[in-house]
C-alpha cells in the first residue's frame, strides 16, 4: 500500500492506485483520479456513472457489469469508453472509489 496527498487530503491506496477503503472516498479523490486517468473535463455524465457504480457497489459489494452500467445510465458501450478511456473496470471503478475488480483484468 501507499499514501498519497492531494489538495490537502490524504488517501491510502493499493499498488494499482485504487482506494484501500471505500469509506475514505470524497470528491477530492475524483479530482485526483481525473488527473491520473488523463480525463480533461469532468462532465455530468461522468458523475452519473460514478453515482451508479457507487449505488450498485453499496447494494451488491461488487462492481456492476458494463451492461448494467449501460442500462442504468442509458449510455452506449462506446460512450462509456469515451468517458473513461481505460474502461469501466479500471478508470471508472477507480474514480468511484471501488476496489480493483478480481479476474484477468
Amino acid at each position: 500500500m501507499a499514501t498519497i496527498e492531494f489538495n490537502g487530503k490524504s488517501f491510502d491506496i493499493d499498488e494499482d492506485g485504487f482506494l484501500l477503503d471505500y469509506n475514505t472516498y470524497n470528491d477530492q479523490w475524483v479530482e485526483y483520479v481525473k488527473g491520473q486517468e488523463g480525463i480533461e473535463e469532468l462532465t455530468d455524465e461522468h458523475w452519473t456513472l460514478i453515482k451508479v457504480l457507487q449505488d450498485y457497489y453499496e447494494k451488491n459489494g461488487i462492481a456492476p457489469m458494463v451492461r448494467v452500467l449501460s442500462k442504468l445510465t442509458k449510455f452506449k458501450l462506446k460512450h462509456i469508453y469515451e468517458l473513461f478511456p481505460s474502461g469501466p473496470g479500471k478508470g471508472a471503478c477507480k474514480m468511484a472509489g471501488l476496489p480493483k475488480p478480481t479476474g484477468c483484468v
Binding site: 457489469m65 458494463v66 451492461r67 462506446k78 469501466p88 473496470g89 475488480p101 479476474g103 484477468c104 483484468v105
Partner: peptide
Amino acid sequence: VIAPEPKFQAGLIY
C-alpha cells in the same frame, strides 16, 4: 470467451 469480455469488455463480443 472469458468473463472479462461480458463483464467489462463487451466490445470484443461485438
